[in-house]
Structures are given as structure tokens and as C-alpha cells.
């Protein structure tokens, strides 16, 4: 059950982020995630760890760009986008991933069979896997669903010192984002990433540079399951139609075979009687 105006989401204003990674630490603490052994420049410049993983649900990406005024850093917090109509939830064969009424896309570890389809279907590759465990589960940001149920904001938002992360009803956040762009059109690109991407996401972004330069993928502006649903609709008709055609053809074939055997039997009998006479 989703209603894009009513559920909770997060506005990430990358122009207000200073890259302190307080959100990363808060996330690790609340989710009780292990530290990762990392190296400097292990990936993407100062970004550390290099990517989301089963032990890193949120990550500040470091992007350096250059314009006439010199070099600029842009920091962006990556995690699960908490889509309106999540691709992961649509593809999971056992319904282990669901969109909660409060906006969180959550994972039921008791249902998962470990097919990892969710990881491939997500255009942001948000779900990660516990590759090194003999009993592995899918891991990703939960929007701190447990904190939400206690009426608290997600840990990363609480840990953000600059207000770059804002938690609230998605509609309010969208209005806030639109207002910021309207107020400072020279400061922001005119694009709220996540407003329309994948049919709308709970996590939305503002940026001073185009999102493609931040390494954000270009995602279609419709729900990810659109093509699959078109094909899915055909299946009952296919089953009924093919079933009818096959049964009909089979019956005709059987009839033809029966007549052929009967004729052959009659002929041989006629021959036999003819021979006896």
C-alpha cells in the first residue's frame, strides 16, 4: 500500500553536505554493522568504503568537479531509495521485500530464499549480499523502520550536523525542494532526483551539478515493473488459448489415428476372409 503524498521520505540537499560522514557512523551504530577494513583511495577518491555493502547501508560519495571558479567537492549520501513501487519488491518470488505504509522498503529475512533477483532488478544496486556467510541474507538500508515506529527519525538524519538530510512526509519534502530551487535557481540544477525516477522514490535529492556528474544513473520515469507487468497480463490468455488449441488438435489427431487403425483392421479382415474363401 503506497500513497506517494502520505509516506515518509528523506530530502538530501547535496549542496549542504560537508562530507563529514556522521550519517555513515550513525547508521553503523544504530544498525550494529561491522566496520570494514578499507584502504585510502580504495575507490572514487576519498570515498570510503568504496561502495555500499552488506555492512555499509549508507555511504557518502565524493565527487570532484571543475568549473571557471576552480575545483568543487560534491558529497552525496547513497542508500536504498525507498521507491514508491520498488523493483525489488516486485521481483521477489516469495514477497520478502515490501513497501511499508510508513515509506520504508523492508526485508523479511525469514522468507528470503537467496535468489538475489532483487539485487539485479534495483537500478541503484541498493541491496547487498552477505557473500562470505554460509547462511547469507540480503542487506540494505531499512529507513530505520524500527526508529520510525518509535516516532524517531532515521539514525543518519539524526546524525547530520548541517541539515543536509531532512526527514518528513514525501509531499512536504518535495514542496521544500521545489521552493529551494525556486528561491535559488542559480544555485541548484532544476531537477529533483527521485521525484519521478522509477515512478518516484522516498529519498529525493537536490544538487548544484547535473546528477549524471554525481554518478547517479539515468532511470526511467515510470515504475520499473512496467514492462514485466505488460507481459504478465498476457499469461492467463496464453494458457487458456494454448490449452484450447492443444486439446483440440490432440483430439483431432487421436480421432484420425483411430479411424486409420479401424480402416486398416477392416481391410486386413476383408483380405483374410477373401483368402479363406
Amino acid at each position: 500500500m503506497t500513497n506517494s503524498s502520505n509516506y515518509m521520505g528523506m530530502l538530501i540537499d547535496t549542496t549542504q553536505c560537508m562530507g563529514c560522514r556522521g550519517c555513515q557512523v550513525a547508521c553503523k551504530q544504530w544498525q550494529e554493522l561491522k566496520a570494514e577494513k578499507t584502504t585510502f583511495f580504495g575507490g572514487g577518491g576519498y570515498q570510503n568504503p568504496p561502495d555500499l555493502s552488506a555492512d555499509t547501508f549508507t555511504l557518502i560519495t565524493f565527487t570532484e568537479t571543475e568549473d571557471e571558479n576552480g575545483l568543487h567537492w560534491t558529497f552525496a549520501k547513497r542508500s536504498c531509495m525507498h521507491c514508491d513501487e520498488p523493483a525489488c519488491a516486485s521481483v521477489c518470488p516469495v514477497g520478502a521485500l515490501t513497501k511499508e505504509a510508513n515509506g520504508a522498503v523492508v526485508y523479511d529475512a525469514d522468507k528470503c530464499i537467496g535468489c538475489r533477483y532483487c539485487m539485479l532488478a534495483c537500478p541503484w544496486s541498493a541491496p547487498s549480499y552477505q557473500w562470505n556467510s554460509p547462511v547469507p541474507f540480503v542487506r540494505k538500508c531499512t529507513l530505520c523502520n524500527d526508529r520510525l515506529q518509535l516516532g524517531k527519525a532515521p539514525a543518519c538524519v539524526s546524525g547530520c550536523p548541517t541539515g543536509a538530510l531532512q526527514f518528513g512526509r514525501r509531499e512536504d519534502l518535495l514542496n521544500e525542494a521545489r521552493a529551494r530551487i525556486a528561491k535559488h535557481p542559480d544555485h541548484y540544477v532544476d531537477h529533483i532526483y527521485g521525484e519521478k525516477e522509477a515512478g518516484g522514490t522516498g529519498v529525493i535529492y537536490l544538487s548544484a551539478i547535473p546528477f549524471s556528474e554525481l554518478g547517479f544513473p539515468e532511470v526511467p520515469h515510470h515504475k520499473m515493473s512496467q514492462d514485466a507487468e505488460q507481459v504478465m497480463k498476457v499469461i492467463p490468455w496464453w494458457v487458456a488459448g494454448l490449452g484450447a488449441v492443444l486439446t483440440g488438435t490432440y483430439a483431432l489427431t487421436e480421432r484420425r489415428k483411430r479411424i486409420a487403425t479401424e480402416t486398416a483392421a477392416a481391410e486386413s479382415q476383408a483380405k483374410q476372409t477373401g483368402g479363406e474363401l
Binding site: 521481483v91 521477489c92 518470488p93 516469495v94 547462511v135 547469507p136 514485466a228
Partner: peptide, 25 residues
């Protein structure tokens, strides 16, 4: 290949009719 193959029977009673993986199962 499945991470948790001992649960391979789950799709029998945990349904997601939107999923082609469910159909495959």
C-alpha cells in the same frame, strides 16, 4: 546457486504474483 537452498519450497506457499521468478519457480 541459491543462498538459502533449504528454503527452495518457500514459493509454494509464499506468493508474489508480480514476480517472474515466482512463475519460474
Amino acid at each position: 546457486d541459491l543462498g538459502l537452498p533449504w528454503r527452495i519450497y518457500h514459493p509454494i506457499y509464499m506468493w508474489n504474483l508480480h514476480s517472474f521468478m515466482f512463475e519460474v519457480a
